[in-house]
Design a protein around this nucleic acid. Structure first.
Length: 572
RNA sequence: GCUGCUGUGGCUCAGUGGUAGAGCACGUCCUUGGUAAGGACGGGGUCAUGGGUUCAAUCCCCAUCAGCAGCUCCA
């Protein structure tokens, strides 16, 4: 939704008022910080006992009072000493103060309440018109899990009552297209937490969609210079010692399996990279072979913490649409550019336009040399610029083994999920002694680019369900048309049509002993793109009455016309 | 993992300190009906699990497991 008010000011001021209300009601509470965020505002508080729902109601009431008082926000710049005095009883705020430069120490005051805040704010509290406190959750002070656990209260506010109402409707609708609701409802997948949370069971319809996506993915990769490989799901633990996973990635791996001799351990794979490297290292490689691009829909298992699991979007067993590119140093930019082209093609094919591209640079702990990092980071950035893709830089957020480009896509509640990732890897080539012979006969270490476009089939499918609200495009619909018979005697005609269309399309028949209205309703609920109704009239005319999902009746069609329509759909 | 909330038939949810109910779904029968729910009857739940309090617990307390929101982490 689009609103043309100054959200930053508005939501900053709202959070200021919330803090004020909390302070009035619960003077013992310590103030944290209260920024405006993309979807509203929040404020973090520290308190021994948790806020109850009743507390929140009281805070809401108090906020209304403050708004009515209509005090103006006064901005003042204080000296460090003045600020320290004012924040005497706010140790958390003092911590923030320490990090501020002189001249940056701004306070906003309205009536009796002052808060250290960068602003900006509205001119007075009365400008806040319509607000609602949404939920309460915990957060760590300064985002550090070793620090105090804060209580965060979230809220939303708008100048216009209509906007607030619309936002609340948006939240309701978001719930309705949540893949965790739609997936089971449309019989696409299920999760059985009692037998393992974070593990996905793909039902026939979901599996069909997955198969279509996989086929499309494989075909496209073969056309774009990739070769397909397949690798096992487990390997001797020594492989993971060699790759460094048992050292760096242990917390995210399922425990190893022991058998035969006590010292014989196998490890379920959390990543595919070492396997692709084993194929590469199977024999000596020449520079003439490079670039080598190997792709695999590789299923990996990662032990994710209980609290982070989330439907299909964060699971413990998933299939990455993985590929590794081995190339010479001078080809990195070119190869990454190709990956970006491929990514744009895939995301476009699935209708994604709203995504954020982030380039993450060298973190504090890293392997490789700073020069190599510089070169690789520049190559990634150049590749993005080549394709005119705007991106943000996330300083220090790269993985320890190399810089990366991530593409984040939003879910129904505008939460971002990383799908595409393109990473340069300085770690594995060294650990596995990956090399090639250059044209002068010298051993050289190739650059290893690791990339996934969907990220994982599970996550991508989850986002896709929400993106389409369950209304999959024609080519992905598990059932593209359903024939609805009016009565038993129309079954033969229905079967004839089905037989004809079955050659190229996925057609079902609803021959249940139900009225036509009911059959239509069920087909609509199941989001079948087309419905064909067959009764006495149609049997007589040799046509069908065609109906489109949501749009309704399209009129009478003969089979040829239906085929043409469907072929046009596929060509879209 | 952390904080808070939640956990009742396949699903959505009522409800009560004295061993449970609705709608949908499912089954059988009736109905052969024209563009978003035809009707009747019926089967189905040790009220997440394990302890505790109590004469008695689905309901109160504790723990565990799982789900949700957020944080941290991640594809």
């Amino acid at each position: 939704m689009e609103n043309n008010f100054d959200k930053e000011k508005y939501w900053h001021s709202s959070s200021h008022i919330m803090a004020q209300a909390v302070k009035r009601l619960f003077p013992e509470v310590l103030l944290g910080t209260g920024p405006a965020i993309e979807n509203g505002f929040y404020y973090d508080f520290y308190r021994e006992t948790p806020f109850t729902p009743d507390d929140i109601v009281a805070v809401e009431a108090e906020m209304k009072k403050i708004i009515k008082e209509n005090h103006s926000f006064e901005k003042t710049i204080l000296t460090r000493e003045e600020a320290r005095k004012l924040l005497e009883k706010e140790p958390l705020k003092l911590e923030i103060l320490k990090e501020l430069e002189d001249g940056e120490i701004t306070f906003y005051t309205n009536g009796e309440f002052s808060d250290l805040c960068a602003g900006p704010h509205l001119s007075s509290t009365g400008e806040i018109k319509h607000f609602k406190l949404l939920n309460i959750a915990a957060s760590y002070w300064r985002g550090d899990e070793k620090r105090e656990s804060m209580q965060r209260i979230y809220g939303i506010s708008f100048p216009d009552k209509k906007d607030l109402a619309e936002y609340l409707v948006f939240l309701e609708e978001a719930k309705a297209r949540d893949h965790r609701v739609l997936g089971p409802k449309l019989d696409l997948f299920s999760i059985h937490p009692e037998f393992g949370s974070g593990l996905i069971f793909w039902h026939p319809k979901g599996s069909l969609i997955r198969k279509l996506i996989e086929d499309f993915w494989k075909e496209t990769h073969l056309k774009n210079g990739y070769e397909l490989v397949n690798t096992p799901h487990i390997a001797d633990i020594s492989l993971w010692h060699k790759s460094g996973h048992t050292e760096y990635y242990r917390d995210n791996m399922f425990p190893p399996m022991q058998f035969e001799a006590k010292d014989k351990e196998f490890q379920l794979k959390p990543m595919n990279c070492p396997f692709h490297i084993l194929i590469y290292n199977n024999r000596l490689r020449s520079y003439r072979e490079l670039p080598i691009r190997w792709a695999e829909l590789g299923t990996v298992y990662r032990y994710e913490k209980q609290g982070v699991l989330h439907g299909l979007l964060r699971v413990r067993g998933f299939t990455q649409d993985d590929a590794h590119i081995f190339c010479t140093e001078d080809k990195v930019e070119e190869e990454v550019t190709k990956v970006i082209e491929l990514t744009s093609f895939f995301l476009g094919k699935f209708g994604f336009t709203d995504y954020r591209v982030v380039l993450s640079t060298r973190p504090e702990k890293y392997v490789g040399t700073p020069e190599n990092w510089e070169k690789a980071t520049a190559a990634l950035g150049n590749a993005l610029r080549n394709k005119n893709i705007s991106f943000e830089i996330d300083p220090g957020e790269g993985v320890f083994y190399g810089p990366k480009i991530d593409i984040k896509v939003k879910d129904s509640l505008n939460r971002e999920w990383q799908c595409t990732t393109i990473q340069v890897d300085f770690n594995n080539p060294e650990r596995f002694d990956v090399k090639y012979i250059d044209h002068e006969g010298n051993f050289r270490v190739p650059i290893l680019i690791h990339r996934a476009i969907f990220g994982s089939l599970e996550r991508f499918f989850g986002i896709l369900i929400e993106q389409y609200k369950g209304n999959f495009p024609f080519w992905l619909s598990p059932e593209q048309m359903r024939i609805l018979t009016i009565g038993d005697r129309h079954m033969d005609a229905a079967l004839k049509i089905k037989e004809r269309l079955d050659r190229n399309f996925r057609v079902g028949i609803d021959a249940r002993n139900e009225k036509i209205n009911r059959k239509i309703r069920d087909a609509e609920d199941e989001k079948i793109p087309y419905m064909a109704i067959i009764g006495d009239k149609e049997v007589a005319s040799g046509e069908i009455s065609l109906r489109q999902h949501v749009k309704g009746m399209l009129g009478n069609f003969n089979v040829e016309k239906v085929e043409k329509l469907f072929n046009d759909e596929l060509a879209k």
